[in-house]
């Protein structure tokens, strides 16, 4: 069930300005309201996009979180690839990587 609460944390953060304020001022208190494993809480404290992706966070939730953190688009894609390099394949959900880590846009290849 922990992935459920990990995603619920991000769902609420993504849509609630008060939660976004607390993310900056009271992150531990906010995290404490959710039933999270230590690995998940650490990933959230560190904004570890790669690990969150591998843990199975839905890509739409993760994409909005990355935008909230101010991460540029191509950096976001790289962070997910590096997460897989470090932690292995996506462990749950339908947002798996199927392209072997390749880029599918010329814009990214020549940036």
């Amino acid at each position: 069930m922990s992935l459920y609460y990990l995603q619920k944390f991000l769902f609420q953060l993504n849509r609630d300005e008060l939660a976004q304020e607390r993310y900056g001022s009271d992150l531990d208190g906010l995290l404490g309201e959710f039933d999270l494993k230590e690995e998940e809480a650490t990933a959230l404290r560190e904004g570890d996009i790669g690990l969150l992706y591998v843990l199975g966070v839905n890509g739409q939730i993760l994409m909005h979180y990355a935008a909230f953190l101010g991460i540029e688009w191509f950096d976001y894609l790289d962070m997910m690839r590096k997460g897989i390099d470090k932690h292995g394949p996506v462990r749950a959900g339908v947002y798996t990587m199927t392209g072997g880590g390749s880029s599918f846009t010329e814009e990214e290849k020549h940036r």
Partner: peptide, 10 residues
């Protein structure tokens, strides 16, 4: 395949 490393795959 949005919001994954495959973004742009069509």
């Amino acid at each position: 395949w949005p919001a994954t490393p495959d973004s742009g795959k069509i």
